[in-house]
């Protein structure tokens, strides 16, 4: 039985691979559900803070925050790239990084330099390789993103904006559309545009405590943070569903391979039996 042992080992190894991909598929499916719930849970805050920011941008205040003022010339662009920490999730990171790099190229073609903030391991590694100017980064966000961890890297970019080191801030991440479809998108965070905030429902002249500047600073910082946070939570939901789909495809492939290998194995086995019988018959005929 030439080769049958090798085929058996091969089948065994593909079966083991399939077990792993199947398990990863199921883990990703359950994590995806939780990630989607978290995504939904973050929505009320984002809506509320957008409303308040909209009121504020229409309120008559003597103080205009730098986030609300567009600059005439844009010399340097800040870019926050959100990727996953782990691989094995199909083309998710490749797509978002491809979008980021094409944006960076077009900015550089216009003579603008780019500062990068990488949220997630894959983006950090990629930006390091292509020689991006990384200003801040965070990895190991886990399945449940925490605002606490994001504040640091976001603050670095916001401070750079206020200090005039960057004149615009963009964010690239993977938007979750549904389980089968995710889309790499790039959005402008700063300066905040009026239409982004939407129209206010009424006019309020607020009493500010302790004073207008401090409150507006706080509010707009939190507004940007909440936008980044919701992008991160969408990215995680996208990651899990992309991983689930990729692992399902891998499990299906493994199944086909196992089927083919079994066929080869059976053929080899039958050939061996036939050969053995013909040898016996041939031997008996020679003796008789």
């Amino acid at each position: 039985m030439a080769g049958s042992k090798e085929i058996r080992t091969k089948i065994k190894s593909v079966e083991n691979t399939r077990k792993i991909t199947k398990a990863m598929e199921m883990v990703a499916a359950s994590k995806m559900r939780r990630a989607q719930e978290r995504m939904r849970a973050a929505r009320p805050y984002a809506e509320k803070i957008r409303n308040v920011a909209a009121h504020l941008s229409h309120a008559h205040s003597e103080y205009k925050h730098p986030f609300l003022l567009a600059r005439d010339t844009v010399k340097t662009v800040g870019l926050i790239v959100i990727t996953s920490d782990k691989g094995l999730c199909g083309g998710l990171n490749t797509n978002v990084l491809r979008l980021a790099i094409s944006n960076m190229k077009s900015w550089e073609a216009e003579g603008k330099s780019v500062l990068v903030s990488a949220l997630g391991n894959k983006g950090l590694g990629f930006m390091n390789r292509v020689g991006g100017n990384i200003k801040s980064h965070i990895t190991g966000l886990g399945d449940a993103p925490q605002m606490e961890k994001l504040i640091g890297p976001i603050k670095v970019m916001l401070d750079a904006y206020v200090a005039g080191e960057i004149d615009a801030l963009y964010i690239s991440y993977t938007r979750f559309i549904n389980t089968m479809k995710q889309e790499a998108v790039s959005e402008q965070l700063l300066p905040l545009s009026g239409e982004q905030l939407g129209a206010a429902e009424g006019h309020w002249d607020y009493i500010y405590e302790p004073d207008a500047k401090l409150v507006i600073d706080d509010l707009l910082t939190r507004y940007v943070e909440s936008m980044v946070y919701s992008s991160v939570s969408e990215n995680i939901a996208s990651e899990q569903s992309a991983r689930m789909v990729a692992m399902k495809a891998a499990s299906d492939n493994a199944k086909t391979v196992i089927g083919e290998l079994k066929l080869v194995y059976n053929k080899a086995r039958q050939a061996a039996i036939t050969k053995e019988i013909s040898e016996i018959v041939g031997g008996a005929a020679a003796v008789a």
Binding site: D205, Y206, I207, Y208, E209, P210, L214, L219
Partner: peptide, 14 residues
Amino acid sequence: EVGIFPRHAPLLSR
């Protein structure tokens, strides 16, 4: 501490 009853004046505070 601030106590707020309905129809309070618009306020924005930390």
